[in-house]
Design a protein around this nucleic acid. Structure first.
Lengths: 344, 344
DNA sequence: CTGAAAGCGCTTACAG
DNA sequence: CTGAAAGCGCTTACAG
């Protein structure tokens, strides 16, 4: 391995001069700089990351904590991973991916041994067990997803309440009077996925305000129960003219389910949903939807974390930030003529 | 931060004694060990990973190189990531996840700066541009996927040829005389995904040997073209009694497509495929299939890489290993009565 | 504009 | 059974 000492010897300068030439923290004469650059190129020198980390107390690595739950639609998580990773690289950080089933312990292991400069927590729940560990550890962290107690924490999440209101408004404006809502599976509620009830409560409240009937259900995460469940809901509410789907597995399966049932969208049934652009493209989903902006959450979360790590004044006090949803109209809703009703 | 020096002072011993007590590389008197353990617990000491790496030249981190191709069914990659990560943890390694679009450069950046002890390359193609970088770098690597030139490389992949033969045999044994094969999209061939032609060539050859008609096509990776393409193939070969699907996106969409078409499996059409157990569960696929054993590949690849890193004599010379496929019969094929023919 | 020296926090021969 | 010392490869005050 070639070290900074080899470069220094080769260039006939001191190690500190090489270091300064590389970091640019000192003015170096053109001639010296050139000799050093040549030596670096000839010897193929790249600074040792561990030695640098030891000296500077900066690893330039971020820990990304993923959780894989059985009974959850895994592809939905993928949409966060790539944006986080790319945003990190753009800021000069690499990603240590942590899939340990025991998240709290993993945070201590990684954090206490100074393997990373900060943490990104994905899929955060209301009383996420990883949060106490995160508070105990030296490194700052950013949460993607809203916990109950956000004190002293940088948190970012989609504004799920607003998303629900936008979708209900969209249907209300088009004259819909009776709609069915499919939320994530109930076990996600039990686990504390706050996005479930934030979306659901807001949808119910908004519907009530308009005097709009809404039938709210928890959905499924696996075929064929998904199909059975959707069919049962539509059977139970034959006069409903619209379906609001806040459930990744269900929306991915919905085109097949509706075709199977002979229901055309939007002619027989209007459908609105909530998913990220990438997810929609992956499954070729043709529905009007709020874009869940996984990339924006990932990017913005990483940016805030880096500001916190570097103690940038722009970081401000720790704060929960809610990203405004954007509705993408793909024409999967139709105006309802008050005198007609649909059978699906 | 508490260092090994703090622990030593607190316990009234030397730093080397603390180090040896922690590593167990020396016998320590019961009393001393106890004092050290108490000091470690009271002060909350965890060794600094960077310092340890600097001294031992071991990072205990593995670089995992992922590639995200537009026009590829991303969920299929997920099935490798978790097994690799878990196998690594079981061996004491963490995972640095590298999603850099420029893989060759990333390998040099990470490897030359000694951030990892070895590399795992996913989704390797015939002339994978990352391989020259891997050869130049100090760290060993394991490839999951078969390149053209495997010299001096540890490679592991499913035996796709054998997988194809098993599926053709399965159909032949049940009296099928005319079948349709859907391979991955053609752009995967262009990119050098050798599993495409290894499977396809073996299937065609095996079918020929039995005098079995096989119509081989490249499939699609996105709806709605997937559906159109499958429908066109079935229209073009009305006397085909079986479909062999070697295409993740297509098999995930197939249940919907066939329902839509009014084709029952296996009554109207036999279907066999190739996918991992996790993938099948994710999409609730009911087809008889060779299990692509992503977890076995991941585990086994990591194990071999670790043997290589640690220079274990068990590592042997670098070798391409082909995992034997296992057929999982889910009853999606039926015996063909030679006198009947199907219309689908 | 450049160099000599200290030190980041460990591990491990060397010595007793 | 234990300790003092060297050294891994960097960065950065301190000094000139």
């Amino acid at each position: 391995m070639t070290t900074i000492g080899d470069v220094a010897r080769h260039a006939g300068v001191s190690r500190s001069t090489v270091s300064y030439a590389l970091s640019g923290k000192r003015t170096i004469s053109a001639e010296t700089r050139e000799r050093i650059e040549r030596a670096v190129a000839e010897l193929g020198f790249t600074p040792n990351a561990g030695a640098r980390a030891l000296k500077t107390s900066q690893t330039m690595v971020l820990g990304l904590l993923l959780q894989f739950h059985a009974d959850e639609f895994a592809p939905a998580m993928l949409q966060y991973v790539l944006p986080v990773s790319q945003a990190a690289r753009a800021e000069g950080y690499d990603i240590l991916m942590v899939t340990d089933p025991d998240g709290p312990r993993a945070i201590h292991r990684i954090g206490d041994s100074d393997m990373v400069d900060g943490f990104v927590l994905l899929d955060v729940t209301a009383d996420d067990p990883r949060i106490p560990s995160l508070r105990e550890v030296r490194q700052p962290g950013v949460l993607i997803g809203l916990p109950r107690d956000t004190r002293e924490l940088d948190v970012i999440d989609l504004d799920f309440g607003e998303a629900a209101r936008m979708l209900v408004d969209h249907l209300h404006e088009r004259g819909h009077r009776e709609i069915v809502l499919v939320s994530p599976p109930h076990h996600v509620v039990e686990r504390g996925g706050s996005y479930v009830w934030r979306f659901r409560d807001a949808a119910v409240e908004r519907a009530a305000r308009y005097g709009l009937q809404i039938h709210a259900y928890y959905g499924e995460s696996r075929s064929p129960v998904i199909g059975q469940s959707v069919n049962a809901l539509l059977d139970a509410h034959p006069r409903a003219t619209a379906l609001v789907v806040h459930n990744d597995a269900t929306i991915a399966a919905l085109p097949g389910i509706l075709r199977d049932r002979g229901v055309r969208v939007p002619d027989d049934l209007s459908v609105v949903s909530l998913y990220s652009r990438d997810f929609g493209e992956e499954f070729s989903l043709p529905f009007t939807a709020v874009e869940s902006a996984a990339d924006e959450l990932g990017r913005s979360g990483v940016a805030q974390l880096v500001r916190r790590i570097t103690r940038s004044p722009d970081a401000g006090p720790p704060v929960a930030r809610f990203v405004a949803p954007v509705l993408r109209d793909r024409g999967s809703t139709r105006p309802i003529d008050a005198t007609r009703s649909t059978a699906h």
